[in-house]
Each structure stands twice: as C-alpha cells, then as structure tokens.
Nucleic acid binder design. Structure first.
Lengths: 184, 184
DNA sequence: GCCATAGTACACAGATCTGTACACTTTTCT
DNA sequence: AGAAAAGTGTACAGATCTGTGTACTATGGC
C-alpha cells in the first residue's frame, strides 16, 4: 500500500477539500470514494466522522507568515492576502465559522478549535500592535479581527472580493488614529 | 379552526423560532408538531420545505427604526442594540448568514434574500452618512457593515456580547475620521 | 516461506428525512 | 341544514446517512 503519502494523510487532504468546498455534511461514502479508499479503511484511521471533522479543522490552523517589515505594513498586507483568498476559485468563507454554523451541537469540539484559531489570529495582530507601540493593543487587535471576519462574511454573501479593500481602508484609519502610520 | 392567528402565520412563527434556534436542518415533523398542526396542513400552506425557508427569511427582513436623533448618534445606538441582541438568550448569529452557510446550493433563493437584507442595512447606514455630510458614504457604509457582520461572527464564536462595544469604538473612530463627531 | 498488517468490496442495520396517500372529522359560510 | 373548506392521524415510499460485519486479497519484514 506504499503510496507517496500515507493513507491517513490522503484521507485528510480529501476531507479538507470536500468539507471546505461542500460543507461538512458531505457523506462518508463520498469521502472514501474521493480519497480512493474503502469506507472500512477510512473508519480504521478515524474512529468516527466527528473525529475526522476535528482533524480537518486542526489541520487548517496554520501559522501566519511573519516578516521583518514594519508592523503596520504587515497588518495591511494581511488584508491584501485576504483579498487574494476571496478572489480564489474555491473560496467558501471561513472554514471554522462554517463548521460551527453547520453543527447545531454547541458542545462539539469544533467550537473550541474555532475559538482557538480566532484567538491565534488576534494574538498575531496584538504582537504587531505592541511592536508598534499602540496604547490599547487588546482593544485594537479585536477591532482588526472584527474587520477580517466581517470582510469574510461580506465577501461570501456579496460574492465580491473587493470588500477586503474596504476592510483594509478601515484598518488603516484605525491604525492611524492609534498612532501607527503606514505610508502606502 | 378559529385561532387568533391564521394557521399560515402560526406555522411561520414556529419556523422562525426553530429555524433560527436550531438551524434550518430541523425536520418537518418537528415543525408541524411544534406548530400544533398536522404535516399535511403544513404542506397545504407551503408547497415544500424550501418555500418555508424562503418565507422565514423574507419575514426576518424588518425595517430598522428611524428617529430624528443626529445621524452619528443613531449609528452608534445601532451598535448598542447589537450588544443587547448578543446578550439575549436565544442569540445564534445572523439568520441570513447561517442559512446561506447551511445550504450548500449556491443557487438557492436564500442567497438572494441574504444579499437583499445586507444591502438594506448598508443603505440605512448610507442615508445617515449622507445626512452627516461625509465625503464617501458608499465606502464608509460598507465599512460599518463589515464591523456589524464581524461583531456578529465574533460574538457567536467567542460567546461574548461585549465585542459589540469594540465594534462601536471602531465605528466612532471611523466616523470621527470622516468628520462626523458624536459626543458620548 | 510465513504471517501480521493494511486494505477491498459489499451488504446491511438502524436512524432520519421529505413528501404523499387515504380515510376521517371539524369548522365556516350561506 | 348542508355543502365546501380546512384540518387530523397514520402509514408509507424512497432516499440518504453513519457505522459495522464478513469474507477475501495484497504486501512487506524477518
């Protein structure tokens, strides 16, 4: 069975593609068929569909790139990355928010993972704001996160990637008001 | 059969409560039982579950109250209303975004209704900004809408109503930068 | 050569869901 | 009073879903 990738990884990659692209309501039969494994094998690697959903979300938590550019510039660049993501073919919103919305159970592990992810993003903003010397990094980092989440929701509903630019403009105003100018 | 409300209205109220509270995946049997009608009656009033979902969303589009207070004050008051909604018992996020997220089909009528609702909210902001004499009411109204949607998503994931205050603070900074001061 | 490990193919139990059929009862209007 | 309109209750068809059972096959290490 030696493929280039392990069977577990192949299943997880397929789950990522289908869960994100079509929602986590995709059936296990479809998942197995698309991954090229039997359903029995899938259940040998992941004890339940919930476990697979959990692994899918955990895998989606990736570190955001860090550079040595000025903090304000890095923050604004992040909104540009957002716009490129919105314009991408398979954009379907935020995987974590979607998962939480699709699962009615508020005690599902997906909630905690989504919270962890959003908090990581906020801390990334916060560290840059501290480096920039703003007075209230907690409050401002949360406001930047609201702009990101709002842009994601709006891009999805309006089917328009350029909302990222509106978010970026708002972010620049907020940064300027906090004393972090970024020449453009 | 003479109730105080028509059967159609009673079904629709129940659909509103269950669809919003538990998601639109709620079964038709549950809906009929909770509404106190037989399933046959439900299907006599709404030809399919999709039609009921559509009616539910259309009913959720309500006009936002207008007053004669200063525009900036009305906008900030809107964020206070948001915080009260977040703190309410049954808060479950934005009904329109949730519905779009739960329905995989991007051609479902729910998408158009959600877009219509978001655009109505933006126009409400826009009219107030025009009254306030800002230079770019289109851009700024979109930015305010991003703050609203971001706050809704964050309130849901973090389970914390006070994010509305962060959104309100950001809105005040944006308004001030556009020349609309609101004394607090 | 042998054997544990990994995987396959397929059927199936049991649950849930939408929508319909059928025979019956209640209400409303004139 | 009497007919039309509205509603009830229950069963069911047909689809889809998760998860398991069973018997079989390929493969790599020692």
């Amino acid at each position: 069975m030696a493929s280039r990738k392990s069977t577990s990884e192949r299943i997880l990659e397929t789950a990522d593609r289908l869960f994100y692209g079509q929602g986590i309501a995709v059936g296990v039969d479809t998942l197995a068929a698309e991954a090229g494994v039997s359903k029995r094998t899938l259940y040998n690697h992941y004890p339940s569909k919930d476990a697979l959903i959990e692994a899918y979300l955990v895998r989606r938590i990736r570190l955001i790139p860090t550079s040595d550019k000025p903090p304000a510039r890095q923050i604004l660049d992040d909104f540009d990355r957002l716009e490129r993501a919105f314009a991408g073919e398979g954009f379907r919103g935020c995987a974590f928010v979607n998962a939480v919305a699709e699962l009615k159970d508020p005690r599902h592990a997906a909630n905690a993972i989504a919270l962890r992810f959003k908090e990581m993003r906020r801390q990334w903003f916060r560290a840059l704001l501290v480096r920039g010397g703003v007075a209230d990094p907690d409050g401002l980092s949360l406001q930047l996160l609201l702009l990101v989440d709002g842009a994601i929701a709006a891009a999805l509903v309006r089917n328009d990637p350029t909302v990222a630019r509106a978010a970026r403009d708002a972010a620049r105003v907020l940064l300027a008001a906090a004393g972090m100018e970024a020449r453009d």
